[in-house]
Design a protein around this nucleic acid. Sequence first.
DNA 1: TATCTATGCATACGTTGTCTAAGTATAGAC
DNA 2: GTCTATACTTAGACAACGTATGCATAGATA
Lengths: 113, 113
Amino acid sequence: MVQRNPEMLRGTVELLILTTLRGGPRHGFGIARWLEQTSDDELQLEEGSLYPALHRMERRGWLESEWGISDNNRKVKLYRLTSRGRARLQSETEGWAAFAAAIGKVLRAAEAV
Amino acid sequence: MVQRNPEMLRGTVELLILTTLRGGPRHGFGIARWLEQTSDDELQLEEGSLYPALHRMERRGWLESEWGISDNNRKVKLYRLTSRGRARLQSETEGWAAFAAAIGKVLRAAEAV
DNA sequence: TATCTATGCATACGTTGTCTAAGTATAGAC
DNA sequence: GTCTATACTTAGACAACGTATGCATAGATA
């Protein structure tokens, strides 16, 4: 994922992928596209991050995959959330909210100075 | 920095340190304390992350340090923002805002599904 | 005096995630 | 037949973070 500070994405890639798959099965390329569009090009998931992340998450049992054919007649690997993936999405979402809130507190506290 | 997903902090450590120093010079331990308290214990900066980060940031010219004595009569290394550090704080703050907004968009978009 | 606790700084090492870069394959347009 | 966009894979480099450890000392307590 590329932007001003590439390190900032660490750990959120998985949340983003899980979130994308909430709406139903998608293939890797489609996930990246959707994230890019939905974030107005702010979030760009590189292939070298995307695919290893998908494999990792499948290994962990958060995703399942199967080969299929896309709308444009291409061979694609479709990923879908497992129940464990759904649980993980839940906890990651909560984790993100808590984290973002904490950062917010700190930024506001420093502003007050 | 420790919490539910340790990876989530990647890249924000420096923003957090810069933010803490906005209010004036502080020593490493004090920075960690302030962040912990201000975030209601959500953000915990480990020493193995804190000190290397401070050294790194000083090397990059964002911080300056000098040895001093703390309120409780201890030898401490006081860090302060340089002008470059101030500029960096500015851009990191903007970067964070853009990033958090992007994540927010994605989360909301997926909720709508 | 000795010991304990909290404070304070430093760093070697391992783990992990991300990016760059290279490779393969193919559908559809021209 | 070539080009472009789509689509997946993986090796290797790099960087940040955490764990663990070591060192030092002020103040309290026994």
